[in-house]
Every structure is written in C-alpha cells, then in structure tokens.
Design a binder for these strands. Structure first.
Lengths: 144, 144
DNA sequence: TAAAACCCTACCAAATTTGTCAAGTATTAG
DNA sequence: CTAATACTTGACAAATTTGGTAGGGTTTTA
C-alpha cells in the first residue's frame, strides 16, 4: 500500500479535532478523546505530549482540566499537526533534511519526489481543523 | 518522516528509467541496471519480476538478452509503476480497497485522506518515463 | 553445450510501528 | 489539607514492514 500515514498521525489529527471542538474555553480530557475516537489513553498521552511540546495545545491539570487549543481552529493546519508527529514530508530518505542526498546530481528521480512532497505539503497546509469541524471537507475539490 | 516511499518503489522507477533508455530495441540487462543504479542484482530481480508480470516490461533470455519496455516511454506513468510495486495509494489502511473502512460515516478525516490520495495519484499519472528521460522534470511546476 | 541471462521461493535481520505498563507530578474542589 | 482528577515521563515489548540475501532452478542462443 503506497504512501501510508502512521496511526500516530491519523490519531493525532482526530484528537486535535476533538480538542478543537472545545475551543476556546472547554478543556477536553484524554479520556473523552479516547472514548470518542476509540484510541487508548496511554497511546494518546504520547501523541498529545508531542503536540503540547510543539505549542499546538496546552494542558490544564487537576479536576476539570484537560487540553485546549492554543490557536483558533482555522489557524491550525493538518500539515502542522503531521509535521510534529511524523516529521516533514519526505518521500525518500534522501529528501529528509536530517540525512541529505549523496547523489542529487546523478539521481534522475530526485526532482520528482521533491515535487511530489511539496504538492502534498501545500495541500495539507490548506486544510485546517476548522475545515474538519465545519464539515466543509466535501468542498475540497474546489479548494485546491 | 511523513509519507515515505519504500525502496522497492524508488528502485523500480529508476530501473524502469534504465530500461526505457533502451527503447524500442536494445535489451537492458539486470547487471547493467544494477551497476548504473547501485542496486543489487538479487533485489532487482524481485522488482523486475513484478513489473514483468504486470506487462510493463518483457524479458529476453539468453546471451544478448535483457529487459525491454512493452509500451513507449510516454505511455508508462510513474503511477503505473508504483501501483504494481506498492499497491494503490492509500494514506490510511481503511482506504485500502482490500481492507475497507468500518467507520466511514463517523470518521471526520476519511474524506481528507481520500482526497489527498487522489491528488497524489493524479499527479503521478501525469509524469511518465519520457518525462524523466527528456529531462523535463524542471517543468513539473508548470505541468501541474 | 556451456555460458549468459532470466525465474522463483525461502528465509532472515534490522528497523519501525503500535502500542502497554508503571510510576510518577501537579492541581484544585470541597 | 487531602483525595480525586488529570496530566507527565520513560522504559519496554510484540507485531509488522522493510530491505534485502541465498540458492537453487529454467530457458535461450552463440
């Protein structure tokens, strides 16, 4: 199966969707997210931890606490979420900024994978949590 | 790293590029591909076997033999090659035709991943082996 | 007839994914 | 002030996928 997204990325977006629904004031607990999205609490903890460190969400401890979005839903793109959870889009490992490519010049396909990655990134940048909440996904074909 | 392509897919495209350069008459041996693209003969055998069974290439045995493209380079898209080696583009496993989705209706992100997959597929369908051979990759931004 | 070249099936090691588990720390309602 | 709520952290492990290797074929033709 070509170009799969890991569950971490998938669950992360769905978790952010639940948190976004509480914006701007109602904290959403991990337990609620777990029940609505059918993902284990322990696994969600790992995911939300990363997103919190990236300042996409903040957490409130104690009774009545939970997670809150740091920005409004229309300012949080899917690309931003996935970037934190899975790193940058990089179709091949030689396009990973951390690794680099040893045969850029001789590689006939380098430009191709680069272009594909950029296309994906651009697309995911146009979709935000607000798009998901408002149910405007069916408009996607027009958007792009 | 988000949305990585496996080496099978990457090597497959590069192998097809070498074979395409021999079109229409000059068979290209595995050994030649192996040397030019720096991929082991044994691994290439697996990859080319799949592509042959998919009728993208044909093989000629015996001395002087090798692999030949079945269609002209401008009729072989990157999408077609990757489809054989990696299966269909399916960002999530529930979009894999073989598995299916149990929560399509309730899943807020289903449409999103579907749209992304379609975008990728459409893009890769516009690029062919001829695009690679002719060095027109720098034109990609205009194409799409 | 032997060398060239493809064909096929197992098998395996390493990396990644997909989580679980256990033991914290911080906050606040009452 | 204390108990319940809720987040925080790090270690670890099973399962899957990736990225191959090995070794034996078979077919063709110079």
């Amino acid at each position: 199966m070509m170009l799969r997204l890991s569950t971490k990325g998938q669950y992360g977006v769905r978790a952010m969707y639940e948190i976004a629904k509480g914006y701007p004031e109602t904290p959403v607990t991990i337990k609620e997210i777990s029940e609505k999205q059918e993902v284990s609490v322990a696994y969600l903890e790992q995911i939300l931890n990363k997103l919190r460190k990236a300042n996409l969400i903040k957490s409130i401890k104690g009774p009545g606490g939970g997670y809150l979005l740091n920005k409004s839903p229309d300012q949080v793109s899917i690309a931003a979420i996935l970037n934190e959870l899975e790193g940058p889009v990089a179709i091949t490992s030689c396009l990973n900024p951390e690794e680099g490519c040893v045969r850029v010049d001789s590689c006939v396909t380098h430009l191709l994978w680069k272009a594909l990655g950029e296309k994906v990134e651009a697309f995911l940048s146009t979709i935000t949590l607000k798009t998901l909440i408002s149910g405007d996904l069916y408009k996607i074909k027009e958007i792009s």
